[in-house]
């Protein structure tokens, strides 16, 4: 289990990274925390010609709260975000969700942008981004564009990011004053990828629910004024719509059960 050969560049700025991506395109691969990329490299599932290491580029790390959003530089580590003073106030959902990402050792390296770009259907950060309707900012020599969560992650390990694009910042809308959040995750072992993960948000009588680990990417529904058995009905339909598949950890049917069950708990937890 040793990686195949590749060239390696450590960049100091966005500019440098973007230039290299323009030069090498599909042959290059960004490495941020390496917590997903390195296992794939060691298993030789990925074969880049050039590895562009962005972990040390100062401008790709840091968190800013401005106006209505929190803007996180893409290579900010998950633990740096977890330690950020403003987290509880501005992104209470992430304060709940982040500790579920792997272990503290993997969060010490793993980045916010890396998790989103990796686009694992079970990952917590894409789930939160989907629920909160966050935005990923992409930069290439061709310019900058911002993609909403649902346009960014398009399938299993697949995003709309082009080969020459670098994710530079992630924008999470700040939690509205009246919002209440819940986060639920079911995994086999502590620190494992979720079998099913759910995030819920309530503002008044509007509820949004995002589910990860079932479909090819997190899926979101929102409802207004749901009560009593209507909640169960809505969750049941949502569960059936998600599809899902059997794997060695759980069956598709089990995932639907979890969506129904944990969905109810999550929604209840947000209830006033």
């Amino acid at each position: 289990m040793k990686p195949p050969r590749f060239d390696y560049v450590r960049v100091e700025s966005i500019e440098q990274a973007v230039e290299l991506l323009a030069q090498h395109g599909d042959e290059a691969r960004v490495i941020a925390g390496g917590q997903s990329l390195m296992p794939m490299l060691n298993m030789r599932l990925v074969r880049p010609q050039v590895l562009i290491d962005i972990a040390k580029a100062a401008e790709l790390s840091g968190i800013k709260a401005n106006g209505k959003a929190v803007s996180i530089a893409a290579a900010t580590t998950q633990n740096a975000l977890l330690r950020w003073q403003g987290l509880r106030a501005h992104l209470p959902l992430l304060a709940q969700a982040l500790p579920h990402i792997g272990h503290f050792q993997t969060r010490n390296r793993g980045t916010v942008g890396g998790s989103l770009c990796h686009a694992d259907p079970s990952s917590e950060l894409p789930l939160c981004l989907a629920l909160l309707e966050g935005v990923v900012e992409l930069r290439s020599r061709r310019g900058t564009r911002r993609l909403a969560a649902r346009d960014f992650q398009v399938g299993v390990l697949t995003t709309a990011k082009q080969a020459d694009e670098l994710a530079t910042r992630i924008h999470f809308p700040k939690a509205p004053e009246d919002a209440v959040f819940a986060f639920k995750e079911f995994h086999r072992r502590h620190g494992d990828f979720a079998v099913v993960a759910l995030a819920a948000m309530r503002c008044g009588n509007a509820v949004r629910l995002a589910v990860g680990g079932v479909g090819d990417r997190p899926e979101v529904r929102s409802w207004c004024g749901l009560q009593g058995s209507a909640i169960d009905d809505a969750l049941n339909e949502f569960a059936w719509q998600l599809g899902g598949s059997d794997d060695i950890h759980a069956t598709a049917r089990y995932r639907r059960e979890l969506v129904r069950h944990m969905g109810r708990l999550a929604i209840a937890e947000t209830a006033p």
């Binding site: 289990m1 390696y8 450590r10 390496g34 917590q35 390195m38 296992p39 060691n42 298993m43 590895l51 290491d53 972990a55 633990n79 792997g102 272990h103 503290f104 050792q105 993997t106 010490n108 390296r109």
Partner: peptide
């Protein structure tokens, strides 16, 4: 060598990380 077991954990600038998920040049 895929980040799960933790046997390779070291401190990098004071923080515990998996050394199997890092390159020497990093």
């Amino acid at each position: 060598e895929h980040g799960v077991c933790g046997a390779c954990t070291i401190l990098l600038d004071g923080r515990a990380v998996r050394s199997c998920l890092m390159l020497a040049v990093q």
